[in-house]
Simulated assay, not measured.
Amino acid sequence: MTRRCSFLLGFCCALLPLLTQANVVVGGTRVIYPAQETEVSLGLTNKGEQPALVQVWIDDGSADSRPDDVDVPFVVMPPMVRINQGKGQTLRIAHIPRPGIPGDRESVYWLNILDVPPLPADQVSNHMQLAFRTRLKLFLRPEKLSGNAVEAAQTLRWSLIGSGPGRVLRVRNDSAFHVSFNSVQVKLKSGHVLKVRSHMLAPKSSADFPLEQKSSSAEAQGRVVYEWISDHGSSVRREAALEL
């Protein structure tokens, strides 16, 4: 990467919170990469009224990573491209096998798409250039995993653990797939509804989700109502019983 490009990236990232809308639209909300495939593709479209410079890279979970700092088993082409207004570009992502990547479960990475609009022709000295970065989850899915992503979301095991302010909703994922949530709440038998602060659940793991409201430790019966995100980016609602 040239010094100019590195400076541009750092400057634009510093301005990300100031932008509310991107011109470049991504054709998906996540990328599923079957490990047996040579490559997968993702479409970009410039819906704006002027050209955009797009820089693309993949990181292993650190949002502060720069393209020249990351070390991941992927190559994305093109890493930087100009997309004219009303036009599109297809990204090609190739997996480079390497030792140490689990073969019995999914691994997750992040695809970064930085949309940098051009400087206006009549720019003045106090002009501020803004950029917008989109981060998508990229799931590397090994061959011949037992089950599938739908079964993973449907077979989660839920229970209320602890008492008082430290009480949490514990969820266990015995599958080989990640499960991402849109929302989680607990409907207790007493009629109380508890909202839960949730996050993505890794394969073959458990997590404790904090409750946003206090609940009595005596209340342990009820159901969990949760929305999980499918491979296609749609939100799927499901209910499950709390285990005692």
Rank of each mutant, 00 (worst) to 15 (best):
residue 114 L to D: 10
residue 95 H to F: 15
residue 57 W to M: 09
residue 108 V to E: 11
residue 116 V to L: 12
residue 67 P to H: 04
residue 111 L to C: 01
residue 78 P to L: 05
residue 75 V to A: 13
residue 89 Q to R: 09
residue 66 R to F: 13
residue 113 I to H: 04
residue 70 V to E: 06
residue 103 G to M: 14
residue 121 A to F: 09
residue 109 Y to V: 06
residue 71 D to N: 13
residue 98 R to G: 09
residue 112 N to D: 09
residue 114 L to N: 14
residue 127 H to R: 06
residue 124 V to A: 11
residue 83 I to A: 11
residue 86 G to E: 14
residue 130 L to Y: 04
residue 105 R to V: 07
residue 64 D to Y: 11
residue 92 R to A: 09
residue 116 V to T: 13
residue 73 P to G: 01
residue 76 V to N: 00
residue 92 R to N: 12
residue 60 D to H: 08
residue 73 P to N: 01
residue 96 I to C: 08
residue 88 G to H: 12
residue 129 Q to N: 09
residue 103 G to Q: 15
residue 105 R to L: 07
residue 119 L to N: 11
residue 112 N to A: 11
residue 69 D to P: 01
residue 86 G to H: 07
residue 96 I to T: 08
residue 131 A to R: 02
residue 75 V to W: 05
residue 122 D to S: 07
residue 62 S to C: 13
residue 94 A to H: 01
residue 100 G to Q: 07
residue 57 W to S: 07
residue 84 N to A: 12
residue 59 D to Y: 04
residue 110 W to K: 08
residue 60 D to W: 05
residue 113 I to W: 06
residue 100 G to C: 06
residue 82 R to M: 10
residue 124 V to N: 07
residue 81 V to K: 12
residue 94 A to K: 02
residue 70 V to P: 10
residue 115 D to N: 05
residue 74 F to S: 02
residue 56 V to A: 13
residue 61 G to W: 09
residue 82 R to N: 08
residue 72 V to A: 01
residue 123 Q to V: 10
residue 106 E to N: 05
residue 64 D to V: 08
residue 56 V to D: 12
residue 121 A to Q: 12
residue 67 P to S: 06
residue 113 I to E: 05
residue 72 V to R: 01
residue 118 P to M: 11
residue 114 L to R: 14
residue 80 M to E: 15
residue 88 G to A: 12
residue 61 G to K: 05
residue 69 D to F: 02
residue 78 P to S: 06
residue 127 H to S: 09
residue 119 L to S: 13
residue 109 Y to I: 09
residue 118 P to Q: 12
